[in-house]
Every structure is written in structure tokens, then in C-alpha cells.
Design a protein around this nucleic acid. Structure first.
Lengths: 168, 168
DNA sequence: CGCTGGCTTCAGAAATTTGTGAAGTTAAGG
DNA sequence: CCTTAACTTCACAAATTTCTGAAGCCAGCG
């Protein structure tokens, strides 16, 4: 997918149609997995952008949504650590950025959710009695989550190594 | 939390109030993580039940919801492999059951979602060009998912071992 | 072979969520 | 300071989702 330039060089093409296709398709997958629509679209657009960072106006234009919608989507994404915001020095413009290793961040963040599940389960074991069938079931569930939490930490460490090796 | 029986033995108490507290609290955590309300409540109720299996009527009564709501919730949960249905022989009654290792199942199931994400990303790399900045970002994201997929398989195997050891 | 218990499906009311236009806020630029 | 660019917040209209009561369907039982 390249575009002849006449001067012998070629630059990678960025057909808006192609970009949009990817954005909408990938966003749809994210939506199916539970992400709200606008945050999903904004995130996909950032992923597919050249610099990995876009302004509110650019997102608004590219996705054909109101500035308000961009604002809401970005607030959501920032809250779950899927984008970071950076202010452009000497301008009131803000850029929203994805890091290539954002998923690492986002996954790490899920830890908080797990913790709350674990707390609820511990309360349940205490309330129902560790010696009851239900209590034992809850305890086993709790053990699984604790196991996963521990394993994920190791997994992320291994990814950091592999990432460094493959992508610098 | 035990209840004196007068004959010297004691049985674990199942105060409906206590059970309900756990069910609603744990369900709330699941809802916050994206599960629809009724499926979350039904799942929590099953987890907290003595046998790990309840009938539609029992769920309906305990959660104060219509049989229709139970039906919908169970269909949802079965689809994502979080409960299994079993017919009671010689009766038209059905029981819905959680296995203690249901989470293992559910997580394994997420693989399908990951696969679709990966497909969308591969298309994106192809469309945008592997030699473009955006293409490289998508490729790295793809690599991360492939890595996770591989790691999770190993993790689940380790859990099976640990589970066997600790819970038989 | 018809009745009945038990789940499922359906249509619709109610609640929730989403996205927008418009007004509000803040800070750079003149 | 006053203007204006660039978000953000707000109130509301629209779309969606969620639950319910009622009707439907089917397997056992008599």
C-alpha cells in the first residue's frame, strides 16, 4: 500500500477510508467486549493515528462526533488509564495519546477490580462460615483470583523483557 | 457464625440476611466490571448457595425477580460458560449450577474475544502498512495479545496443579 | 389424551445510557 | 482587560436496555 510520488520515492498511504475501516471494525470488537462506544472509537482512532496522539478537534472531525462526545470519551479512557493527556505548551490545545504499551498499563489497572472482588469474597467466607459448603466454594474462588493476581505480575515482567528485545 | 442445636452439635447458620448481603455486594462488584445486573445477581446467588445449584423458582424467590428475569439471566450466563444447566431426572425442573472452577472456564472462553481482536489488528497492519508508524503500533499491540494468549495457557495449567493440591 | 407444573418467549412500560447543542470556564493573545 | 480559542459541563431528546406480566409451549402424570 504505497503511493507513487513521481520523484522516485514512495510514502506509505493513509487512505482515510482504509483508516476508518480499521477504526470502526476494531472499535466494534472492543464494544462487544464491554467498552462503551465512543471511548472505543476514540481509542481505535488514536491507535491508528500516525503519531499516536490527536487533538480533540481532530478526533471530532475524523469520527464525526461532537466535541462534547470527545470530551466524555477521553475522560472515560483517562480514568481507566487507556490514554494520557498532554497539554501542548503555549497553546490551549490538548493532545490525547496512546502508548504502544498502554495495554500493559490497562491490565495492571485491572488489579484494583480484582482486589475489590477479593474483598467481597473474603467477607462472604467470613459471613457464611469457612466450614460450610458455600464458604468453601467462595474460598476456592478467592484462591483462584489471588493466584491470577500473582501470575499476572510475573507475566507482565516477562512481557517487558520480550518487548524490549523485539521492539526496543 | 454457628447456631446451637441443643444436642451438642452445631450447624453453620445460613441467615438469609447474611447471604443476601454477600450476594448483593458481590453482584455489585461484578456489575461494576461490566456484567449485566441480573446475570450478576444470579451468579452470586449460585456461588453463595449450599449445593452450588438452584432451581429457577428458588432464584426467583430469593432474588425477588420474575421467572422471566431468571430465564434471561441464565441464558446469558450459560452463553458465556459461567453456569451449566442440568435437568432433574423425572421432573421438568431444571437446576442451574456453578462449578467452583467456573472461572477457569470463563477465562478460557475469553480466548475467542482475543482472537477477534487479533484478527482486526492483523487487518489493520496490512491495511496501514507494516512499515508505517501506525502499522508498527498495531503490530506491537498484536504481539502483546499473542503473548498474553500464550501465557494464559500456561497459567491455567499451573492453576490446575495448584488447585488439585489445595482443594483436591 | 387432557391437565398441570415449569420454563421460555413476547410485547411493552420503565429506567438507563448516549450523544448533542448550548452555555460555561479557562487561559493565551492582542 | 477584552477577545477568542479550546475544551468542559449541563440539560435534555433519543436510543437502548432491562424487567415484568401475560401468553405460549412442552414434558410428565393421571
Amino acid at each position: 500500500m504505497t503511493h507513487p510520488k513521481g520523484d522516485g520515492s514512495e510514502v506509505a498511504e493513509r487512505d482515510p477510508e482504509t483508516v476508518s475501516r480499521f477504526v470502526e471494525h476494531f472499535a466494534a470488537q472492543l464494544v462487544e467486549a464491554g467498552l462503551p462506544r465512543m471511548p472505543a472509537r476514540v481509542f481505535a482512532a488514536l491507535l491508528a493515528s500516525d503519531t499516536g496522539a490527536l487533538t480533540s478537534a481532530e478526533l471530532s472531525a475524523q469520527l464525526r462526533i461532537s466535541p462534547a462526545a470527545v470530551s466524555g470519551a477521553v475522560r472515560y479512557l483517562a480514568q481507566v488509564h487507556m490514554v494520557s493527556r498532554e497539554r501542548e505548551p503555549g497553546s490551549r490545545r490538548e493532545r490525547y495519546r496512546v502508548h504502544a504499551d498502554q495495554w500493559y498499563e490497562a491490565l495492571t489497572n485491572r488489579e484494583a477490580v480484582l482486589k475489590r472482588w477479593e474483598d467481597a469474597l473474603r467477607d462472604g467466607v467470613a459471613g457464611l462460615g469457612a466450614d460450610t459448603p458455600a464458604g468453601r466454594r467462595l474460598a476456592e474462588t478467592l484462591a483462584f483470583f489471588e493466584f491470577v493476581e500473582k501470575e499476572v505480575a510475573g507475566m507482565m515482567e516477562r512481557w517487558r523483557v520480550e518487548r524490549e528485545r523485539r521492539f526496543g
